[in-house]
Amino acid sequence: MKPPPFSHHAPRDLGEALEVLAGAGPRGKVLAGGQSLIPMLNMRLAAPEHVIDINRLEELDTVEAGPDGVTVGALARHARVARAGVHPLLGQALRLVAHPVIRNRGTVVGSLVHADPAAELPAALAVLGGSVRLARAGAAPRDVAAAEFFTGPMESALRPGELAVSARFPALPPRTGTAFTEVSRRHGDYALAGVCAVVTLDDDLRVASARLACIGVGPVPLVVDLGADWKRAADAVRERAEPDGDVHATAAYRLHLAGVLARRAVEQAVERAIGRAAREAAA
């Protein structure tokens, strides 16, 4: 289990990285944290001719929080983003990503680009309506909304020669609570199913909008907009989810689980929204 041969490039700045990437095209692969790419190399499931190692691009090791949301640079690792504590849902999602040691190295943007249908971060981005910024040499960067970014299992809108430079997680409106629930076989494994929820209350502390994203139940994160009808969470998810069975769980169980987790996530998010509304009112 050793990687196949490749040319290793270690660009010093973004411009150089984009140049190299443009030259490599479909034969190139970007290495950031490597926690998904290197296993694939070791198993020889991926055999890029060029590996463009962006670990020297400190300009991409950024976590910027503003009133509109959080922008996470391509080299910001899970542990660092979690420590920054800049977004409740991002924090909740990151706690569920693999194990602490993996989180020391893996990057948030890398996880989004990897687009595993059972991964937490794509769902967080999707439920929040965030976006990924893609850059290429000689062109203006383009922002791709989550809804368009995840195109299939392990597939994204990233084109050959492009580098995902950052991801934007929109800030939560007032009176909003979030939650991420999942069931995995072992602690830290990819989820059998998981649901994250964002719930916003109106002035009378009734649910004005509830939005869910489910993982492990389809090729891409499944976003379900419940509007105010948050009590339908379980049914709404079960109506739309189309999970597959595998060695760990049947499709029927996953569908059942997604419903249970949807209800739990929404309930938890409602509770947190009420708490937050109270704190906001007090402030």
Partner: peptide, 28 residues
């Protein structure tokens, strides 16, 4: 509760990795 060798009808071992052959961690 966790470990099994899952062969399919073609005799392929479907979970030949520590990702999918679930040896328990301290948390289990």
């Amino acid at each position: 509760l966790y470990e099994r060798m899952a062969y399919d009808a073609d005799g392929q071992l479907l979970n030949a990795s520590f990702m999918d052959f679930l040896m328990p961690y301290a948390t289990e």
